[in-house]
Nucleic acid binder design. Structure first.
Lengths: 354, 354
DNA sequence: TTGAAAGCGCTAACAT
DNA sequence: ATGTTAGCGCTTTCAA
């Protein structure tokens, strides 16, 4: 019943060396004779030694610095949520001497991403959390950090061939399938053929493989049913003069439902409202207040929640757990695809589970 | 830039007392003259002292014992998930010297709940996590623990007038509303009047206020629409001989949809399958394998996920945070009402976020 | 290369 | 009632 916790002292005694030496082999700090090393290793083999990370954290009075390379949140509600997740993580981990240093970039200026990344490199943090929005810019940055030997975690946007400590986000393909199902729900009993659309708003498709994936999933779902026409439309920026025209062209089809692949579903809802379009099914992403406005009015039917707050929180936690508790991270930490309707919305807004 | 962390030593020096005295006033251990106490308190006023909980945990070589009063999980898939959440929490907190002691009771034998509760009292743990399934049995047990001065956290089932450190679970009323919305989804465009049913399977309604709440929410949703008939049926235990008869009676109505208020939706699906009933909408709770079986086949349309694993995990974490980091818990920690469909199911099964 | 020893910030037993 | 001191388990400096 009495759990004797075996510590570094016991190992030292059993191996006939000092605790200093044990510590050195434990951490491969070198400056240990092969002979002493073996003596220690043999004991370690025999004994189930579990380091006390609490004591380690206290002993080494080390600050763990984690840099966060994320979009400036003042302009954007989505990234503001992410910022909140990071703030929460900062509080949760402060007892462990971790400090989080934000490096913000401008969503609309790729150059600022590079610049921030380079500043991080100079600052030499112990770990980095990255929202790699610009695929093309991101890849060389990863290489930079890898060469510097700094572990980094990616979230929100999955990038191929980066090998981060962990990726945190959602499976875009399944997300597209889910969107399709949600549009399809109300039509499962009908027999008339119909047209559904996937709309990409304000995105550089060539640089956004995750949107392509969403579309693929969306189309695959309907392909299995083999009864509906699916059309795609990239309508560009809502600021652009031809934005409405493009949507008008889209709505010339007899659409039964629209899937907006980004968080901009409210732009389509606004369009439909403005031009008195017949109410059709609309599915989009994220709990932005403009989206919620239309969700509550029934003009948006479902939102898929990407949970930026929790993603960011998990990102920091993953790094902290790695740095402090030696916990290996999962290669991919895929979040559930959360379906938001009018009736469960408040339960999401009020809950604060991470 | 140099953050001087102020510690107990600094306070002692500034107050002109010893660290021992500071420690005593910090913890109200008594044996301190009023004069010394004041000297320390004055300094504490001036200084923003944040205790280092890591050091505290290490210094006091204290084991934090948390008892878990939960149903035996060997019989029940739902409670097995809960057990997994507890196991995960045990791993996460073991570095802090917390040990979790499970006290299991039998779902079907109220007496075992009492017995286990009394054993816990004898064991005098530092905190208790409780799944208070039997409202009547639970109340006196709470009193017992309160008198013993042991903080307890409730989860899964909300009990009125208990004042736990925290309740963790879902809002049953909103849950019922959500269920109604999910049933209603497919009918929003129709004009024919229809009947929907709420079915309570195998539950002691008088003892289950949360089921009543669910039904209330369910009915309120439809009341606002004022177009549908809602009927209720308590069909008793699936083992009982009249179970099928009761369901037959229910299905004599021209039902458009059924809401099962518990995790037993699969029993209704089985019934419908067995007796070749026309396929109607079916909404229930929880990711039990039998439910998933019917969900995948499209015989259950939606499941509302109560996330027992995360609830239990959070329960332990809440207690541990309270005991170790002095973190006050939220009175109610209400989880989001998660909607599970065929297409997002796998994302839930594969994710392991807590 | 090694061991001894002084921390890390706090607790708790033990004198006084 | 108070101060002193020896831990907690590990890190890290410093002499040797």
């Amino acid at each position: 019943m009495i759990e004797k916790t075996v510590g570094i002292k016991d190992i030292a005694r059993l191996a006939g060396v000092s605790t200093g030496t044990v510590d050195r082999v434990l951490h491969n700090r070198g400056k240990v004779s092969e002979e002493a090393r073996q003596k220690v290793l043999i004991i370690l083999e025999k004994i189930d030694y579990k380091p006390n990370f609490i004591a380690r954290n206290l002993g080494s009075n080390k600050k763990h610095r984690i840099a966060a390379l994320i979009p400036n949140s003042e302009v954007d509600e989505y990234w503001y949520q992410c910022q909140k997740g990071i703030n929460q993580a900062a509080i949760d981990w402060e007892h462990f001497n971790v400090v989080i240093e934000p490096y913000l970039f401008d969503l609309h200026e790729k150059a600022t991403f590079d610049r921030a990344a380079n500043e991080i490199l100079k600052a030499k943090p112990d770990g980095i959390l990255i929202a790699p929005l610009f695929q093309d810019k991101a890849v060389p940055v990863f290489e930079m950090f890898t060469n510097a030997g700094i572990p980094f975690v990616l979230f929100n946007t999955e990038i191929q061939n980066a090998s981060p400590l962990s990726f945190i986000g959602q499976n875009s393909f399944h997300s597209g399938r889910l969107a399709a199902e949600l549009l399809h729900l109300n039509f499962s009993e009908r027999n008339d053929s119909s047209t559904f659309a996937v709309v990409h708003v304000d995105e550089d498709l060539g640089n956004s493989t995750h949107l392509i994936e969403k579309e693929k999933g969306f189309r695959e779902y309907f392909k299995e049913i083999n009864k509906y026409d699916i059309i795609t439309s990239s309508v560009g920026s809502p600021q652009a003069t031809d934005f409405n025209n493009r949507l008008h062209a889209l709505f010339d089809h007899d659409l039964k439902g629209v899937f907006v692949s980004t968080s901009k579903a409210y732009e389509v809802a606004l369009f439909m409202d403005t031009f008195k379009k017949k109410r059709i099914r609309l599915v989009g992403y994220d709990l932005l207040s403009k989206n919620l406005f239309y969700l509550k009015r029934g003009m948006i039917d479902f939102l898929i929640h990407q949970n930026p707050k929790r993603q960011a929180f998990q990102g920091i936690s993953t790094l902290a757990n790695y740095l402090i508790f030696n916990r290996e991270a999962k290669e991919k930490n895929l979040f559930p695809l959360e379906v938001i309707t009018r009736e469960n919305l408040s339960s999401y807004l009020n809950s604060d589970t991470f």
